[in-house]
Simulated scan of single mutants.
Amino acid sequence: MPLTTGPIGGSAAWVGEDMATQLDWIVAFTPAELTEIDAAIEAHHRAGRAMGEITPETFRLPTLARRLSKVLDDLLEGRGFVLMRGFDVSARSVEDAAIAYLGIGSHLGGFRSQNARGHLLGHVNDLGFDIRNPKVRYYQTNKELEFHTDSCDVVGLLCLKTARAGGGSRIVSSVALHDRMLAETPDLCRALYNPMPTDRRGEVPPGMLPWFEIPVFNWHAGRLSTIYSGQYIRSAQVNFPEARRLSAIEHAALDRLDALASELSLQMDFQPGDMQFIHNHQILHSRTDFEDWPEPEKRRHLLRLWLSPKQARDLPPVFAQRYGDITPGNRGGIVVQDTVLRFTLEPA
């Protein structure tokens, strides 16, 4: 695989310590923008549209759309993340909150399936599943998530309810991680340019192996694109004896990447109504473990979007193993045989 010839730098190479004091990544909705959102929700209901019919044209946001265009540019070309604050979920039904979230998300990219069941609106909460089950994904539990990427261009989260304790969102610049490793441990940095067998957790597209092999670091068309899930790289070594065995230096590279991710990360504690959007190719994300409320109606609940903007960067051909079609605006997500795309308001 092609390697960078030196550090990448730029606005994408931020560190959490700096971002924790700058806070210009928090964007507050204005009263006029909130009025536009409510008007668009009402128009959606009057038209009798289904959630699958939400588009920028059907969910009109004349003023906010211009700001969302700038947000998308900062996601794809700048620091790679934003937190939008001030949307009152307590005053709205879950359905109306989801409609608003989908409408805002539609201005940033097309919706992509987040699991084998074809869910275009994801639910992040503790379903009480046993993580030892090879088909269970960590976001369905209350366990800490290691730093990772998802299978899309842009990841969005809307906080409906917070946990009793914990559950903080952590993000880190993969560009900063790359540059630090290149400076301090160049041999380990180079090892992350090797294709890594990664467990699909039972969500296997037709004709594919139960794992894919893509390098963590990918230098293509003058950009670094990162794809990473250390938990699933390691589980592929356990679950699939026929997958390529990692070398000692590759294991050391993964360990160093995980340690640096914690060191350089930014933690943000969501408030109900917060909308976080991150550029998946230059940001790793994770979550601290959490203790939930005993009452079911109070339990931690986030809505998630996977989005594919038409303005997204070119990706190397090797990403087709995971993304399928790598055409900007029509890539990413998880589709297996018999997947039916759908929106659901119920966690499952």
Rank of each mutant, 00 (worst) to 15 (best):
M1I: 02
T4A: 09
T5L: 15
G6Q: 07
W14E: 10
W14V: 02
D18Y: 14
Q22T: 08
Q22E: 12
V27E: 10
A28I: 12
F29R: 03
F29W: 07
F29I: 03
T35E: 11
D38H: 05
A39T: 14
G52Q: 09
F59S: 10
R60E: 14
A65Y: 11
V71N: 04
D73K: 13
D74K: 11
R79L: 01
F87C: 03
D88A: 05
S90Y: 15
V94C: 12
A98I: 07
I104W: 02
I104C: 06
L108S: 06
G109M: 06
G110A: 08
F111Q: 13
Q114M: 06
N115M: 01
G128R: 09
G128D: 12
F129G: 15
P134N: 10
K143P: 02
E146T: 12
H148Q: 06
T149G: 04
G156E: 04
L158R: 07
K161S: 04
A163Y: 03
R164N: 13
G167R: 05
G167I: 04
R170M: 14
V172E: 00
S173D: 07
S174H: 08
L177D: 01
A183I: 08
E184P: 10
A191G: 08
L192N: 00
V204R: 14
V204C: 12
P210H: 07
P210L: 04
F217W: 02
N218W: 00
N218I: 00
L224N: 02
S225V: 05
I227Q: 02
S229C: 06
Y232K: 08
R234Q: 13
A236T: 04
Q237P: 11
Q237I: 11
A243L: 11
A243P: 07
S247D: 10
E250M: 00
A253P: 02
R256W: 02
L257T: 05
L260T: 02
L266P: 11
D269V: 14
D269H: 12
F270G: 01
M275F: 03
Q276R: 15
N280A: 09
I283W: 00
H285K: 14
R287Y: 05
R287V: 04
P316G: 04
V318K: 13
A320K: 10
A320L: 06
R322H: 10
Y323M: 09
Y323N: 12
D325H: 12
N330W: 01
G332A: 03
G333W: 01
Q337P: 09
V340P: 05
R342E: 12
T344S: 10
P347G: 03
